[in-house]
Write a protein that binds this DNA or RNA. Structure first.
Lengths: 319, 319
DNA sequence: ATTGCGGATGATATCGATAACAAATGGAAG
DNA sequence: CTTCCATTTGTTATCGATATCATCCGCAAT
């Protein structure tokens, strides 16, 4: 910048002002200096600016990356979420610092202006740990009762209730819920499901499955049949579970959707082309990312920010 | 740091040295100062250090995020790659700056110490554009003939040839290749496939499909049948294509693997539990990420670095 | 007693940008 | 002709860390 100043015959500060579009400098000189900077290939030194401004213009995104823990790494949605976040943040001049939980103690994370937590699953401990940093923080997931932090997530209660209504409309009276309600998100789906069914005097059966795999969905159906539990509808917490359920039901001689209705969750691309095409609940991940980013930015700007839930949509296909 | 110095009764520089484990300060004082820093909750100011050291300790990862362009956003592999990268970089005190191609003009990217390009697909223009920044750069993909930059990728030629050998061993003489050879990666798979087959006097048929969907795989089979082309083996460039092919073949009354052998690519989780369990070529994404990271770090450390291909593995299941 | 040396610590300048305050210029108002 | 204000530009200090070059101390060798 000093070099630029010398070449242009002005002082450093004028360069600084010109390049940041300050109205303090004459329009003509401003444009002249900007053109000059362009021509000489001048690059702003981000560290220097950040040091002076005492901000890093960076938001750390902490992702659960252990494939073993949850299903997080195994489907593409976190990446779409990241896409939404990244787009919104860079549009506002902020950078995305990506970290895993392990790496999150690094100095760079503490230097961030804000924090976004993704896929921390059921572990509230992680949330609290990062809360201690005292940074603006937004979490993706299901809002808990007593938590003070800002949460953005899709409306899992609604996800449960639309499926319930769907089943009721189809005349189903013995629905089953397949999933692991230890995840707050899935707990909410279950609750929405149960409550909406209760309004029609129907009480569903819960069958816990920890894994989100096809095999696990098959297994759930076998186990139900073995226990001679009557059921005519299955709400599975992932499309893979649902597809497993359908496959098992076919093996057991029960038709889908003739004998049993099945609905999955996430509406992954495969769902539309599965056989038969799977009905599923769709969440808008991209929008979720955008919203997460907007909330942190607002918090960084000292605005008051509230948690928010995004509506979901039931895609009715043939199951 | 100045505060720390005052409290400890030493000078700033001693604090600095103590906290960076410099042997210049007495062991006892060093430990005392480190404990003190810990107790007072001192946080290093990264911007200041970066400014002074003229390094950012940051590697920018540029990901193609447009779901429309390629399939990148639609499967989880880029995320696993990111996981490997992130782990390796943070282990060496570097941070991961995540950007899309659009956001890559931001100042923060130019401030990075190195660059990793992911999923830029067939567009070499992007590579060249970032090359101009003059930063250490490593690209994920297939090494081209005349390119000067460092490329890490899995061995797509080998991917093609192992499948060819597999088909030959099964006695297949009329194999088909399904995919879009405009992608350099897929072009290599095709070449490996063709060359390995040629060694046995077999010439495969190429059927171009741009999409990586189930529907596209089905369509390919219908089109082949319509054109009355004889074939007894299908090598599809993705598991979804392969699964579509299998479904279409079943509809057409041709058994898999009885009449036609089918092999997919990527070995996604679904492949193992598909019906019938799908044979597929597996790439080690995590390892790829680690390697990408190691290469940039080496380049940043002014070491000479070469491109590298990772071996792939054919998982033989029932198709 | 003086010199030399190694180990430990400190003073100062510096990285590149911007905020706060100062100053120069030109024109309008009295 | 002076005063005042607005517009535009410049001077200096500062953000928090570290490299470079002193300095200080104690002890051994001359």
């Amino acid at each position: 910048m000093a070099d630029l100043a010398r070449v242009a015959g002005v002082s450093k500060i004028t360069i600084s002002r010109a390049l940041s579009d300050s109205p303090l400098v004459n329009r003509e000189t401003r444009e002249r200096l900007q053109a000059l900077a362009q021509k000489l290939g001048y690059k702003l030194n981000v560290s220097a600016r950040n040091l002076r401004l005492r901000r890093s213009h960076t938001v750390a995104v902490i992702v659960e990356m252990k494939p073993s823990h949850d299903r997080t790494m195994l489907d593409p949605y976190p990446l779409i979420l990241l896409g939404g976040i990244s787009q919104e943040l860079t549009a506002h001049g902020y950078s995305v610092l990506l970290t895993t939980r392990q790496g999150a103690t690094a100095a760079a994370v503490q230097a961030a202006d804000g924090l976004i937590l993704l896929g921390q699953g059921s572990r509230q401990d992680a949330v609290r740990r990062f809360d201690k940093l005292g940074l603006p923080m937004v979490v993706w997931g299901a809002p808990g009762e007593g938590d003070e932090h800002v949460v953005v997530g899709s409306d899992n209660r609604q996800g449960g209730s639309v499926v319930a209504d769907h089943f009721i409309a189809l005349g189903r009276r013995n629905p089953v819920f397949v999933g692991n309600p230890n995840h707050p998100e899935i707990f909410d789906r279950l609750n929405g499901f149960v409550d909406a069914l209760a309004a029609h005097g129907v009480k569903p059966l819960l069958i816990r499955r920890d894994e989100f795999t096809l095999a696990s969905g098959m297994d759930a159906m076998y186990s139900l049949t073995e226990r001679k539990v009557p059921f005519d509808a299955v709400f599975a917490c992932s499309d893979l579970l649902a597809m497993g359920a359908i496959r098992a039901l076919n093996k057991l001689g029960r038709g889908v959707p003739g004998d049993v209705s099945v609905v999955g969750y996430d509406d992954m691309p495969l769902a539309a082309t599965a056989l038969p095409p799977l009905s599923s609940v769709r969440q808008d991940w991209q929008e979720g990312g955008t919203l997460l980013a907007r909330k942190v930015l607002a918090m960084i700007g000292d605005k008051t920010v509230n948690s928010e839930v995004l509506p979901v949509e039931l895609i009715v296909r043939e199951t």
